[in-house]
Computed example of a mutant assay.
Amino acid sequence: MALFNKVLARIGIGAAKVDTKLYKDQLTAGSKIEGVVEVYGGNIEQEIDSIYLQLFTSYVREVDDKKVKQDVMLNNFKITNPFVITPGETKQLPFSFELPKDTPITMGKTRVWVATGLDIKNAVDPQDVDYVNVLPNKMVSAVIPAMEQLGFRLRQVECEEAPRRMRKRLPFVQEFEFVPTRGPYFGKLDEVEVIVQPDGQDQYELLIEVDRRARGLGGFLAEALEMDETLVKTTVHERDTAHVKSILDQLISKYS
């Protein structure tokens, strides 16, 4: 019977199981994510080489002119040394790590999750997935209402593959796409895309792409050649969030 149980455990039947419980599933990037990993022994004694936590999100990239979704690991954590779990035993292993500051917020189609896995020799590695709700940081919380006050509506939030010149640690950026629905930019602009990236302690880099509406033959030619788009960049400190509306207005009006 013991040999039979070992064979079953190797294919995941009657083997150890894992369940991660997050103390909080609503967090801001840069804050601590804490919880406990519970490991439940199966029908036989098994040696666990390691327990790992991997933080994931996904982004859109183009492959052969088609948009595909690509998962990407934001961080990887090993939380224990090798140990043995006996049949029916339960082990609780607390953990704590920082949610990276460049973790995208979970708006639109963006999802962020923690994948937990047990590394077991000669057996199927059990896994568990827990989703995290990443709330807007101080800068994003200031940018969205500021754009709305300027007459824009947030149309889409999406993580997209970034050109190499715009990449930092990650291969993508999170874009906030706004369209004018009223105010001074209505009828002048097609859309404005804003990218908010952490840039050192308590400051952020704002990349703003202004897409001007085509006017006349010259305008349509410019739009066809994507010459109607202007990308501008500025750095804003957290203490200046109260002035974000004015900063955005000046930059957008200059290039609209």
Score class of each variant (00 low, 15 high):
Ser58Ile: 03
Met147Ala: 02
Asp64Pro: 01
Gly30Asp: 03
Thr116Glu: 01
Gly216Gln: 11
Asp65Ala: 11
Thr230Leu: 08
Ala2Pro: 01
Val72Glu: 15
Ile105Ser: 01
Gly187Tyr: 08
Glu160Val: 12
Phe176Cys: 11
Met1Tyr: 12
Glu177Cys: 06
Glu229Met: 11
Asp25Lys: 14
Ser141Gly: 04
Lys121His: 10
Met107Thr: 07
Pro145Leu: 10
Phe176Ile: 10
Pro82Asp: 14
Lys188Met: 06
Ile48Ala: 03
Val194Arg: 00
Gly183Cys: 04
Lys101Thr: 13
Leu22Lys: 06
Asp25Ala: 05
Leu3Lys: 15
Arg10Met: 10
Asn81Cys: 07
Thr20Trp: 03
Glu89Cys: 04
Leu8Asn: 00
Asp119Trp: 09
Gln203Glu: 14
Lys69Trp: 13
Asp25Arg: 08
Gln201Gly: 09
Phe56Lys: 07
Ala162Gln: 09
Asp199Ile: 04
Tyr131Ile: 00
Thr241Glu: 07
Gln127Tyr: 06
Val63Pro: 10
Gln149His: 07
Met166Trp: 15
Gln156Gly: 03
Leu27Tyr: 02
Tyr255Met: 04
Gly216Tyr: 10
Ile33Ser: 12
Leu170Ser: 11
Gly151Lys: 05
His237Gly: 11
Leu231Trp: 12
Lys138Asp: 15
Phe95Val: 12
Arg215Asp: 05
Leu93Gly: 04
Thr241Asn: 13
Gly30Glu: 01
Arg182Lys: 15
Thr241Arg: 07
Lys101Ala: 07
Asn43Thr: 02
Arg164Gly: 03
Glu238Asn: 11
Leu207Arg: 08
Val63Phe: 06
Thr86Gly: 09
Met227Pro: 02
Gly218Tyr: 03
Glu161Pro: 06
Val143Pro: 03
Gly187Thr: 12
Gly14Tyr: 07
Glu226Pro: 00
Lys254His: 12
Glu238Arg: 08
Gly218Phe: 00
Glu209Ala: 11
Phe220Ile: 04
Arg167Ile: 03
Gln174Glu: 12
Gly183Val: 02
Leu170Cys: 01
Leu118Ala: 13
Glu209Pro: 00
Asn133Glu: 06
Ser246Ala: 15
Ile252Lys: 08
